[in-house]
Design a protein around this nucleic acid. Structure first.
Lengths: 109, 109
DNA sequence: TCTATATTTCTATTATTATAGAAATATGGA
DNA sequence: TCCATATTTCTATAATAATAGAAATATAGA
């Protein structure tokens, strides 16, 4: 991951509604949550939500799939792992002092 | 950590210059880097840099200390750990699937 | 105290992002 | 095909963030 990509990912999380949505999707896991359900749970009007969901997609930490009339959004755990690794890269100039585990949620759950 | 605090921390990283500065400080470790050195390395004019350093302080992922005429900035690894834990909290609704190690850089280096 | 250096604050300007109503589009079932 | 529901796009407006020059402030040493 390079700097610009990481900034776009971080920007996608750096907003109250979007962070709330992201954390909801993290909790939900690979099965994800529909746009309508997110709107209801987070109390965000559809057009505003759609704007934020698009930002999250651009950030790369969230993806979507169509399921009938619903659009299901879900967290991209592998991308999240990569972002966290990038943020702690070369900690203290040498071996990383901390590092997120390599395995994404889809692998472990 | 609660949502608003995490947004402020993420906002502090969600900008190209600031992310570059933060990663520089992560590499530098506890010894930190002076404002002047950061300005030189990142090629950012002093007043702009000062604005960004303040944002990083507000974000809580960076702290500063006075050393003679210099102000030394350094990464707050423990805060960074907390932020990452917050972002992956309750992954998939149960046990966390991934989690940053608990130990901050200051402990391990 | 005076001076040079380091850093921050003030300020105005520019650029970017968030909000939500209304309209448009997509999907599956009657 | 027609309808109800789900979601997105369009649009205007409001709010927030970034930039950097000039001036102010802080510190250590002569």
């Amino acid at each position: 991951m390079e700097n610009k990509r990481a900034v776009i990912a971080l920007t996608s999380l750096a907003q109250e509604s979007r962070l709330e949505i992201f954390r909801l999707l993290v909790k939900a896991g690979p099965k994800g949550v529909s746009a309508g359900k997110i709107s209801e749970l987070c109390k965000i009007p559809p057009s505003t939500l759609s704007f934020h969901l698009k930002e999250l997609l651009i950030g790369g930490l969230v993806s979507s799939r169509q399921e009938g009339r619903f659009v299901i959004y879900y967290a991209q755990f592998e991308q999240m792992n990569q972002l966290m690794a990038f943020l702690t890269e070369n900690c203290c100039g040498g071996e990383n002092c901390f590092q997120p585990l390599d395995h994404s949620c889809e692998v472990n759950c």
